[in-house]
Nucleic acid binder design. Structure first.
Lengths: 246, 246
DNA sequence: AGACGTTTAATTGTCTGACAAATGAAAATT
DNA sequence: AATTTTCATTTGTCAGACAATTAAACGTCT
């Protein structure tokens, strides 16, 4: 592991990259302890604050964890799916909001990917998944629910559907697509009528899943996607019209 | 934005979180300049190195960028899809390797998600996408290609297929699933026979895509998934047998 | 000998103060 | 007016110090 003091890049960035590469190449194993900050600053010939900045960078990506005390130090962190979920959701949400991704594009991505779970979920869904989905669907039928809570429940429903596919890699990959939709959905005001329709789709999806009918799940998901898109479009149109009038 | 000096968490982590929240809530807009490090250290009542550690954390997530000089400083960064790709691939690769995700699980996730692109890609594929896919398929038929280069070309082929769906959100979400497979694929030694079979599938997929036949794309993808899985299984079995004999 | 405090050494977390390097803006000069 | 010089601002880096934490080593008492 070497760094170039004359490179245009920050030293701390170079050091972070060197250590990151060592982790990714398997040179540093999970739970292995890195040299202490003092030792690293000697090895790389930089000061301790610079080493610390590099370690903080790696910590932000959950690649290492640090511990104080006599036997403390920085350790290669086993990246857990739950940790990765959070980062994935943060990144996805910011990507959508900062790049002016349209509701339609995000919605299309979400449902396209989610439909790919239909077959697997039908095979593997447990009673637990069904119970969660029914509970959320029931919650969604409460008229007292705020729009925000309705959206949150919608996300929980779809997350249960994705988890029912029983593949942690899929759950991880779709966490971003499903959760990042929430801020976009929150811009919609749901009428009692539209809530009812969505709840109906959710019931149909859950029923089909219970009967392990993957094709039906796919069909209803597709219909729900269309309906959601239509709903969003009408909101956008209405907003556009209001703008023109004012 | 306030922090708690008595919290168990690091001050730099708290500060990073405060700024991250401000960005995600829209309190800080894209390209907006943050206060200088000196000002931030006054505001949060911490030293400059601590502020810097916080900023490096945010930099590692591409949430901010920094610039030296008179009008420099830290700016809220527009998170680009290309930047997010890299992080996504890093995280996905580490997730698979650190959690002992089986080839089967990763492969299932990859093809399940990829198949969800079949319909969209059939509608929207351009001549460019087809050309890339044919070029990669042709490269794969060169016997002189190393296994590693063969895998890299395979990834490029599938990335083109995903991109053909014409939805940047899908491309982003699938970047991890597709690229993170490469290290796992690299463990397989491809015989001339198996390469030929894979190239055949790739040709069929490209043909179907050219004819905008989404169902056929889906079918061939599914067949390729099965074949890849069988291939990997035979490698694993052979390795197991060798282990037992030794 | 074994259980239980105490000390100690190692390590990260934080602070202070300083200087170097980059960079754009303002001032001076031609 | 154009060009060069100076300068102020800001990040990047360094050195050294002290506080907080923690586990292991050490003593002490039973």
């Amino acid at each position: 592991m070497k760094i170039d003091p004359n490179s245009p890049a920050d030293l701390s960035a170079q050091i972070a990259k060197a250590i990151r590469d060592a982790i990714m190449s398997g040179d540093l194993l999970v739970d292995e302890r890195l040299p202490s900050e003092a030792e690293l600053s000697e090895q790389f010939n930089v000061s301790r604050p610079t080493v610390r900045e590099a370690l903080k960078r790696l910590g932000a990506q959950s690649l290492i964890r640090t511990q104080r005390g006599a036997t403390g130090g920085a350790f290669v962190n086993r990246l857990r799916f739950e940790d990765a979920y959070g980062q994935q959701i943060t990144t996805s949400t910011l990507l959508l909001s900062m790049n002016d991704v349209s509701f339609g594009t995000a919605c299309e991505a979400r449902y396209a990917l989610e439909r790919s779970c239909a077959a697997l979920a039908s095979e593997r869904r447990t009673a637990d998944h069904l119970a969660t989905m029914r509970a959320e669907t029931h919650r969604q039928s409460q008229p007292s629910l705020t729009d925000e809570a309705f959206c949150a429940s919608d996300v929980a429903f779809h997350r249960a559907l994705v988890d029912a596919a029983g593949n942690p890699v899929i759950s991880y990959q779709l966490a971003g697509a499903v959760e990042a939709m929430q801020p976009l959905m929150n811009m919609i005001t749901f009428s009692a009528r539209s809530r009812e329709t969505i709840v109906g789709f959710h019931s149909q999806i859950t029923d089909a899943l219970e009967q392990r009918d993957g094709a039906a799940v796919d069909l209803h998901l597709s219909a729900l996607a269309d309906y959601t898109n239509t709903l969003a479009q009408s909101v956008i149109d209405a907003r556009q019209a209001a703008k023109t009038n004012s």
